[in-house]
Design a protein around this nucleic acid. Structure first.
Length: 468
RNA sequence: GGUCCCAUCGUCUAGCGGUCAGGACAUCGGCCUCUCACGCCGGUAACCCGGGUUCGAUUCCCGGUGGGAUCACCA
C-alpha cells in the first residue's frame, strides 16, 4: 500500500491522441504498480474550445484502452469557487495583484523586447500600484524576480531556471476566469496529487507552478517529465503523420493491449523484453526506466506488436474484439466454439482484426464466392475426379481430425498418384473461393463435415455446368 | 532570437569505465511447406564531432553541432 496519487488531465478540445494516451498510461501504470490512486480531471477552462463531444470521445478512448480511474472525473469549470478562494489567498498574502495594463500595450512591449533580443516579459508596471479590483483588471502573480527555481525531475534530473526569466504571469483573466498554470496547481494541491507525470513540453511551465506552490505554502509533488513522441519527420506528432486518435487504432483493428504495449515501450524499457501483457506492465512499470530522449512513433512496429498480441490472445477473448468487425462485414457470428476454431486458423496470419475478419469471411458465407481467377485455374475438369473422390472419402468419416483427414487425402493422392500440393489448391478454392487461406486440414476441421461436403459438391456442380 | 530538454543500427531500445556494443521492428538471404502466413537459421546495419579526466572511454566533465520543446488573458 502506498499513498501515490497520479492524475491525467486532458483538455477536451478534440479526441484522445496517442501521445496523450501515453502519458495517461504512464500515470495509470505507476498508480497501479504502486497500489496508489489515479485521478481523472477534465481541464475545460477554455470554454471556447472545449466540447462535450470531446469529453465523450476521451472517455470512450480511455475505456477502450482499459484505463480506469479511482477519482473523478473532475471538471474544472465546476470548481471556480475553489479557484476563487485560492486567488483571494494570494491576493491577501501579497503574492498577487490587479493589473490594468491593456493587452495592446503588453503586445507592443513584447514585440519591442523580441526585437531588441530580450525576453518578451511583462515589465511589472502595476506590480506596486496596489490597484483595487476594476472592471477589466487581470490578476497577476507576483513572481520572485531573483534567485533560481529548481525542478527536481525524476526523469531529467535537476533542472535549474533563473527566476529572472519569469515574469508576473496572469492567474486570473479580465473576465474572472483563472488560467492554466494556476488551476493546475490548485487542483493538484486540493486533490492530493503527489506525483505529476506529463510531457516534457510542460517542463518550462514547471518553475512557474513551483512558485505558486511556494506562495501557497504547499509541498511540491514529484515531477517526471517524459519525452515527447515525434512523427517520422522528427517534429511533434500531428495529424499529418497519419492516424493519431486512439479510437482510430481501434477501428483499424488493433487490440488495446497491443497499443498499450507499444505506447509504453516507446520511451520505457525493461531490459530486452518487447512483449508485455497488461498485468506484466503493471507489475514491471517503474519511473526509473523511462528514457530521456524523444521517440518516433513507428506504425510498423506497432503493427508487428499487434500481430504478436493477436497470436497470444486466447480465442475466447479475441472473439469479443473480432465480432464487431465481422458484423460490419455482414457476418452473423456469435461467441462460441465455431468462432474460436475459426480464430485458431487465422491468428498466425492476421496482423489486425480487419485482416482476420476479411480472412474469416468464407467461413460464414452460405454460398462460396469464388474469385474468378482462382475458380478458372483450379476448378477445372481435371480436378473433378479428385474432388469426387475426396467427397467419397470424407462422407463416411465419423469425425474430422488431423488423422482421419490426412488418411482420406492420402488415399486420394495414392489412387491418382498426385502430390498433396496438386489436390490441395482445388479443394481450397472449393472451400474458400480463394487460393490463399489457412491450412487445408485446419479449414476442413473448422468448417465441419456438413459445410465441407456441401461446398465440395457445389464445386463439382460448378465444374460440370461449365463443361456443358 | 532567449530559455529548457535531448543525442547507441533506418526506428524503438539494452548498456550504468574494460562487451566480438546485445535485443526487437524493418530490410536482405536461406530452411520449413498444401497456398498464404507462422516458425526457425543467418546477413547488412549504430556509439554525432572536438577537447579533457583516466592505464582505459559509448559510458564521466566541458565545448561545438544537430534535433526537439517552450516563450498567450491556450492547455
Amino acid at each position: 500500500m502506498s499513498n501515490i496519487v497520479t492524475r491525467f488531465p486532458p483538455s477536451p478540445t478534440g479526441y484522445l491522441h496517442v501521445g496523450g494516451a501515453r502519458t495517461a498510461l504512464f500515470n495509470w501504470l505507476y498508480a497501479r504498480h504502486m497500489n496508489g490512486r489515479f485521478v481523472l480531471r477534465i481541464e475545460d477552462t477554455d470554454i471556447k474550445r472545449s466540447t462535450q463531444a470531446s469529453v465523450d470521445a476521451i472517455f470512450e478512448a480511455l475505456e477502450w484502452l482499459g484505463i480506469d480511474w479511482d477519482e473523478g472525473p473532475f471538471f474544472q469549470t465546476k470548481r471556480f469557487d475553489v479557484y476563487q478562494t485560492y486567488v483571494q489567498k494570494l491576493l491577501d498574502s501579497g503574492n498577487a495583484y490587479y493589473c490594468t495594463c491593456s493587452q495592446e500595450k503588453i503586445d507592443t512591449m513584447r514585440k519591442e523586447a523580441m526585437a531588441g533580443g530580450g525576453k518578451p516579459k511583462y515589465d511589472g508596471t502595476c506590480r506596486y500600484k496596489g490597484l483595487a479590483k476594476t472592471a477589466n483588471a487581470v490578476i497577476r502573480f507576483k513572481a520572485p524576480a531573483t534567485g533560481t527555481t529548481i525542478v527536481k525531475d525524476i526523469i531529467k534530473g535537476n533542472v535549474v531556471f533563473q527566476n529572472s526569466e519569469q515574469d508576473d504571469f496572469i492567474i486570473c483573466r479580465s473576465d474572472g476566469t483563472p488560467t492554466y498554470n494556476f488551476v493546475v496547481v490548485v487542483d493538484d494541491i486540493t486533490m492530493g496529487i503527489n506525483t505529476v507525470i506529463r510531457g516534457d513540453d510542460h517542463l518550462n511551465n514547471t518553475p512557474r507552478q513551483i512558485m505558486l506552490y511556494n506562495a501557497l505554502e504547499s509541498s511540491l509533488p514529484a515531477f517526471g517529465h517524459v519525452p515527447m513522441v515525434l512523427g517520422k519527420d522528427r517534429t511533434r506528432l500531428s495529424k499529418r503523420h497519419g492516424a493519431m486518435s486512439v479510437t482510430a487504432y481501434r477501428d483499424m483493428g488493433y487490440l488495446p493491449d497491443a497499443l498499450i504495449n507499444y505506447l509504453v515501450r516507446l520511451g520505457w524499457s525493461y531490459g530486452d523484453q518487447e512483449f508485455f501483457s497488461r498485468d506484466e506492465l503493471i507489475e514491471k512499470f517503474t519511473l526509473e526506466n523511462i528514457g530521456k530522449s524523444p521517440g518516433i512513433f513507428d506504425q510498423e512496429k506497432l503493427l508487428a506488436l499487434n500481430a504478436d498480441h493477436i497470436k497470444a490472445a486466447p480465442p475466447e477473448k479475441l472473439s469479443t474484439h473480432l465480432l464487431p468487425f465481422l458484423s460490419e462485414r455482414g457476418c452473423l457470428a456469435e461467441k462460441g466454439d465455431f468462432i474460436n476454431s475459426v480464430i485458431k486458423t487465422l491468428n498466425t496470419r492476421s496482423k489486425t482484426l480487419i485482416d482476420m475478419a476479411e480472412g474469416a469471411l468464407f467461413y460464414f458465407q452460405e454460398e462460396v464466392l469464388y474469385e474468378e481467377k482462382a475458380a478458372k485455374k483450379f476448378l477445372t475438369p481435371a480436378s473433378l475426379e479428385v474432388l469426387n473422390q475426396l467427397i467419397d472419402q470424407l462422407k463416411p468419416l465419423e469425425s474430422f481430425n488431423e488423422n482421419s483427414l490426412e488418411n482420406a487425402f492420402k488415399r486420394v493422392m495414392e489412387t491418382n498418384g498426385l502430390k498433396l500440393g496438386i489436390i490441395a489448391q482445388p479443394v481450397r478454392v472449393a472451400l474458400t473461393g480463394k487460393t490463399v487461406s489457412p491450412g487445408i486440414f485446419e479449414i476442413i476441421k473448422a468448417l465441419g463435415k456438413k459445410r465441407v461436403i456441401s461446398r465440395l459438391q457445389n464445386a463439382v456442380q460448378l465444374i460440370k455446368n461449365r463443361k456443358d
